[in-house]
Design a protein around this nucleic acid. Structure first.
Length: 208
DNA sequence: CAATGTTTACAAGACT
DNA sequence: AGTCTTGTAAACATTG
């Protein structure tokens, strides 16, 4: 846990620097591959050119990122890459973009790698722990895990201030306990849906 | 306001 | 059968 190696000490800050990511990529002998079906993807009949690609969004996004020179892309670049390579999405409504954003946020395999020059959004990169597999076209489900549920760490700072909580990253420096800030003023939240640290830290039903 | 980012919910299918 | 992954939809926050 937290054993990412001395060369992979993630610098302080909420996002990964591209230098850090590239150094990690060098260690795994990254060799981006053209878009293709993941070995773990379910077998489907051969797709027509305009059909929806068999790859998952994780695969599409990863391939887009890995095909870029700096191994990082803006959200808009990811959109563009997908449309360029998969005409299916070109004339499609916007829902697939929602799915792309959803996947970027939800899956720990995607990390933010600095803000764009124009301040619009972040660069998105691939977590070093996933680079080797992704570069081989292996998007195993277990490696693309759902973001870890926020655990009850006591009344500390919200999750974000801990940095990455995954087992591959160096441990974040200790954060002193603090009192809970006031819960946000949102009328739509039911009690069980309050965000951390107000809601999810509290147990829901025992066997939900 | 639009784009971006986060989070929840749910259904369907794959996996164990 | 239960769990997990994936895709989709949606609500909402943040930012320029």
């Amino acid at each position: 846990m937290g054993d990412a190696g001395p060369g992979h000490q993630r610098p302080p800050g909420a996002s990964f620097t591209i230098e850090y990511l590239l150094s990690a990529q060098g260690d795994v002998g990254l060799s981006p591959q053209p878009p293709g079906r993941s070995p773990t993807a379910p077998s489907r009949p051969p797709a027509e050119p305009g059909d929806k690609p068999a790859q998952s969004y994780i695969a599409l996004i990863s391939t887009a990122i890995l095909s870029s020179p700096e191994k990082k892309l803006l959200l808009s670049d990811i959109y563009q890459w997908i449309m360029d390579h998969y005409p299916y999405f070109k004339n499609k409504e916007k829902s697939w973009r929602n799915s792309v954003r959803h996947n970027l946020s939800l899956n720990e395999c995607f990390v933010k790698a600095g803000r764009s020059d124009n301040g619009k959004g972040h660069f998105w990169a691939i977590h070093p722990a996933n680079l080797e597999d992704f570069a081989k076209g292996d998007y195993q489900r277990r490696r693309a895990r759902r973001r870890v549920r926020r655990v009850n760490v006591g009344f500390y700072h919200p999750y974000a201030l801990y940095g990455c909580c995954c087992p591959w990253c160096p441990p974040a420096p200790p954060v002193p306990p603090m009192a809970l800030p006031p819960a946000p003023q949102r009328t739509r939240w039911a009690w069980g849906r309050l965000p951390a640290p107000w809601g999810p830290l509290l147990p829901r039903a025992p066997f939900l």
